[in-house]
Amino acid sequence: MDKFIAKVIGDANHHAANLAAVIAPLSNAVRARINLAIDKVEVYERNDQLARTCWVTISGRRYVFTYNYGSGQIDLKVGSLQGALRSSFDNNTPAGTIAHQTARL
C-alpha cells in the first residue's frame, strides 16, 4: 500500500498537481477504517506497473478509488469501476468531506 501511495503522489506531482495534496489525507482516512484481519486492499497492476486504481473491501462492501482523467479528480465508486459514484476528491476537498466519506465506507 505504501508503494502504491508513494507512486500515486509522485505521479500527481508530475501530471496532476491538483491531486497531490489530497492523496495522503485520503489514504490516511481510508487506512483508519481498514481492519486488515478482515478487510482487503487491492491495487491494480498492468504490465508489472502499478496503475492508478485501488479497491478496498470494508465490512464486506467493495469500493474503488480511481483517477478520473476527464475531471482530473479521484473518484470513489461503489463495487466496481462502473459502480455508482460516491464522491470525488481533489486538493480543494475539505478535510471534513474526506472524513465524512471515508466514515461511510
Rank of each mutant, 00 (worst) to 15 (best):
A84P: 02
S80E: 03
L50Q: 02
V8K: 07
N18W: 01
K77H: 06
S88H: 02
F65K: 00
R46Y: 15
A24Y: 02
S27C: 11
N35W: 09
K3V: 02
S71I: 06
N47A: 13
G96E: 15
R52T: 15
S59I: 13
N18V: 10
G60A: 13
A51Y: 14
R61I: 14
Y44C: 09
A24T: 04
V30A: 10
N13K: 06
I9S: 01
N91F: 07
E42C: 03
S88M: 08
G70Q: 03
T66H: 05
Y63D: 02
A37R: 13
H100L: 10
A103G: 01
G72Q: 11
W55H: 14
D75C: 12
T57D: 03
A6R: 02
D2F: 03
A12K: 03
L105F: 10
V43H: 06
Q49F: 05
F65Y: 05
I34P: 09
A24N: 13
A6M: 11
I9W: 00
F4L: 01
G96Y: 11
F89D: 05
L85H: 08
L76P: 08
A24K: 07
N92K: 06
G70A: 07
N68M: 04
H100E: 05
I34L: 14
I98G: 03
K40Q: 02
V41F: 06
E42G: 11
L85K: 14
A51L: 01
R61H: 14
A84Y: 08
Q73R: 05
F4Y: 12
D39C: 07
K3T: 14
N13H: 04
L19Y: 00
D2C: 02
V8M: 03
A95F: 12
V41T: 05
A29G: 13
I58F: 09
T102R: 00
C54D: 04
E45G: 00
W55F: 15
Q82S: 15
D75H: 11
A99E: 15
V78Q: 13
F89K: 08
V64A: 03
S80W: 09
N18F: 07
Y69P: 02
S88F: 09
H15E: 12
D2Q: 04
R52S: 05
F4N: 07
D48I: 04
N35H: 11
R61W: 12
R62C: 11
T57P: 11
A95P: 06
L105M: 12
A99K: 12
A37K: 12
E45M: 13
T102F: 04
N68W: 08
L105G: 02
T53K: 08
T53Y: 09
G10D: 00
A29V: 12
D90V: 01
A21K: 11
E45R: 07
D2V: 04
L36A: 14
I5Q: 00
K7N: 01
I38L: 06
R46I: 06
A21H: 07
N28S: 15
K40E: 04
Y44I: 05
G10K: 06
Y44F: 12
G70P: 07
A95K: 14
L81S: 09
Y63H: 10
Q101A: 08
C54A: 15
R61G: 04
N28T: 13
H15N: 14
T93C: 08
